[in-house]
């Protein structure tokens, strides 16, 4: 599955705001909750970049999992293809 690159602005949006997507994969919920908190405690541009890097790495590692693919489609729409 093609994962949008770290420069895609939606990654930063996910870290900055506590979105209300109904994610399916437990780890998506936990890691994003943690990254939201991390950025709330240190909202520097460098921290934002680190959080985005971590989130992209998580999705890349798990992109073969159907629930993760569904979570990606929630964020980026059906444009994200298997």
């Amino acid at each position: 599955m093609q994962i949008p690159g770290a420069r895609n602005p939606l990654w930063k949006e996910l870290i900055r705001s506590e979105s209300e997507y109904a994610f399916e994969f437990l780890a998506t919920k936990i890691i994003l909750g943690r990254l939201n908190l991390k950025f709330r405690l240190n909202n520097s541009p460098e921290e934002l970049d680190r959080c985005v890097y971590e989130l992209v790495a998580f999705f890349e590692k798990n992109s073969h999992v159907p629930k993760v693919q569904n979570d990606l489609k929630l964020i980026f729409g059906e444009g994200v293809r298997n």
Binding site: S19, F23, L26, T28, K29, I30, L32, G33, R34
Partner: peptide
């Protein structure tokens, strides 16, 4: 209980 994107911890 903490709510992490719907996961109740």
């Amino acid at each position: 209980v903490a709510n992490l994107h719907g996961a109740m911890i």
